[in-house]
Simulated assay, not measured.
Amino acid sequence: MTDDDLTYPERGGTRHTPLPPGYHHLREAVRLGHSPTAFAAAGDAVATFRMHRAAGTRIRAGSPRAAPGVTVDVSLGIGPLRITGPCRVVWTVDTADRAGFAYGTRPGHPECGEEAFVVERRPDGSVWLTVTAFSRPARALTRLAGPLVPVFQRAYVRHLGATLRRLTGGAGDRR
């Protein structure tokens, strides 16, 4: 599959620092636990979109697992207030200490940019969800929301972290 329909040129930009200029940047980390079991459970929940679904996000994906090229429609809200954002997975990671993916925006998404969801086991054994994104408004609605968008994004990351902790049941969380 191709990523020619992405609405921004910096494909894979969430893999690197610094993030591309000209966008709002987000990098938030939430501690999930402290064990190999927590890492495995959280990594699987992210890669299968289970974390998103359990957090109340409607996900329609072209595959049960995130993989480069997979299309994903992400919807938040209810009824006439539901906002849908077409995306495509642009990269994945699945190593002994990192698991996750990033998707980029496609035409019709209210934002323009990329967002990554990565579970990481740090050297001290702690397990973290890190969400990294760069974005800017692509529609009048998101331009009008202005400074509220970053506030919403940070709150959503905290919600995802709490959801992921609940899904993993604090799996093996020991200190």
Rank of each mutant, 00 (worst) to 15 (best):
E114A: 03
P150E: 11
G77T: 10
R136S: 07
L144W: 10
T130L: 05
R175H: 13
L164R: 02
P107A: 14
V72Y: 01
T84G: 11
R158Y: 09
R60P: 00
R106W: 03
R31D: 09
P107F: 09
H24E: 14
T2C: 06
T105A: 10
R98Q: 14
A99F: 03
G161Y: 02
R15W: 03
Y103W: 13
V149S: 09
V151I: 15
R50T: 14
P110D: 08
E114K: 02
H16K: 09
R27F: 00
A61K: 04
V70E: 02
E111N: 09
V157I: 10
R11L: 13
G56M: 12
L141S: 14
Y8N: 03
D97S: 12
R31T: 11
P86Q: 08
H16R: 13
P150I: 11
I78G: 11
E115Y: 02
V30C: 04
E10K: 01
G125H: 07
R50E: 15
L144Q: 07
T92M: 08
F39T: 01
H34F: 04
G33D: 04
F117K: 00
D94M: 06
T71D: 14
A145H: 07
R143N: 07
V72D: 02
D73Q: 11
T130C: 07
T2V: 06
V46P: 00
A41R: 11
T105V: 06
L81A: 15
W91G: 01
P9F: 06
G13N: 05
E120S: 15
T95M: 04
Y8F: 15
R106S: 08
L144D: 03
L19W: 02
A29M: 07
G33S: 09
R98K: 12
P123T: 07
L76M: 13
G108F: 10
D73A: 12
H109R: 08
P123Q: 09
L19A: 04
G69E: 05
P36N: 13
G77S: 11
H109S: 09
T37G: 14
R174W: 06
P68Y: 04
G85H: 04
V90R: 00
